[in-house]
């Protein structure tokens, strides 16, 4: 199917919108009317209705071209958002291969990859790129392999090395993050980079998740959904720029909730990389404003209940405290108390 790519902004005048079809493919992160941390990983295989965000293993949607433009703007301002430690070169090539192959397999009308031994030919039609290069030779690409391909793929990317029974965040492209800094966290292990997350450590969530991930197998990627909320459709909610976007959180009023408040969902997929034995974390961000969310009655009811009953520590950590009461009040108009069906898909 041919995707019609939109021209829109994630800053300034914030013209980002979801088309009605795109709302239906939003990966809604709540399978029940409440939320708590869990090691909620499942095999990353196609699921959901046709056209859903889980249809292809690396998802491309109508926001692709505009998101790539926003990423380029972020990198121009702050190149430290993309970094790789020197020992990660094999993993960078693994990442390039994976993203090219998956995008070409999912969207042959938009991307194509031709391999002739190590002579590769990559065509990215939406961005107007036609690149011949030698796989394994960084001097044949305009950027290092991870930066090259992640300037052409939606979502943030972290490559983690596995050694000494732990995972180490040793490379990444991070421009659409929910408030964490790659420049600060690069080189940290799994427990350390999750250090700031409240409650979950005491619950043993990270111990179990780490044990599970250390045995992640080639050819069997897994996924999980995570979420937070963002005021205005801003992709770059980085700590680096927190002093610039933090004031947004003060601007929510009962009149503008529907337009300003966004549910931000992260579709995280985790892949074992073949050459390097490293692991790729894809953290794909989706934004849905409250006006769009309430067009799906099940999601409106459920999100009202989740947000209302969220433990205070989690609301603080996710930065929701200032606008939660206003948003819950607004959402309550769309919750008639009716039962909701289990699972994340619209009814």
């Amino acid at each position: 199917m041919n995707i019609k790519f939109k021209q829109e902004t994630f800053r300034g005048d914030f013209t980002y919108r979801n088309s009605p079809d795109n709302i239906k493919r939003f990966p809604f992160p709540f399978h029940e009317d409440k939320y708590m941390y869990a090691v909620n990983m499942e095999p990353h295989v196609p699921a959901g209705p046709k056209g859903y965000a889980f249809e292809h293993m690396i998802d491309v949607d109508e926001h692709y071209v505009s998101e790539m433009r926003d990423r380029a703007l972020v990198l121009k301002e702050d190149p430290l958002r993309c970094q790789a430690l020197p020992h990660m070169m094999a993993a960078q090539w693994d990442t390039l291969e994976l993203l090219m192959e998956q995008q070409a397999a999912g969207y042959p009308e938009h991307f194509s990859l031709t391999k002739n031994s190590d002579q590769w030919h990559w065509i990215n039609r939406p961005l107007g790129i036609d690149q011949k290069f030698t796989f394994g030779d960084p001097s044949t690409l305009p950027y290092e392999p991870m930066e090259y391909i992640t300037r052409q793929a939606q979502g943030d990317f972290c490559i983690v090395d596995q050694r000494d029974g732990n995972l180490w965040m040793d490379a990444g492209m991070v421009t659409t993050q929910a408030d964490w800094s790659l420049d600060f966290d690069i080189g940290m292990n799994f427990m350390e980079w999750h250090g700031p997350v409240p409650l979950a450590h005491q619950m043993g969530v990270f111990d179990r998740a780490l044990k599970f991930l250390l045995n992640l197998q080639q050819g069997k990627p897994v996924r999980r959904l995570n979420w937070t909320m963002t005021i205005n459709p801003r992709l770059d909610t980085s700590p680096e720029n927190y002093h610039k976007w933090g004031t947004d959180r003060m601007t929510v009023t009962p009149e503008n909730v529907g337009e300003k408040v966004h549910l931000r969902c992260e579709l995280q997929s985790l892949w074992r990389l073949p050459r390097s034995n490293a692991m790729l974390f894809v953290i794909r961000c989706y934004l849905l404003k409250m006006d769009e969310l309430v067009t799906v009655p099940k999601w409106a009811r459920r999100f009202h209940r989740v947000l209302r009953d969220l433990p205070t520590e989690l609301a603080d950590y996710k930065g929701l405290t200032r606008f939660r009461p206003t948003t819950v009040e607004w959402l309550s108009k769309y919750d008639d108390g009716a039962a909701t069906s289990s699972g994340i898909f619209p009814e």
Partner: peptide, 9 residues
Amino acid sequence: MLVQGIKSR
């Protein structure tokens, strides 16, 4: 943002 007891200490 005001979280104490972080594990990377």
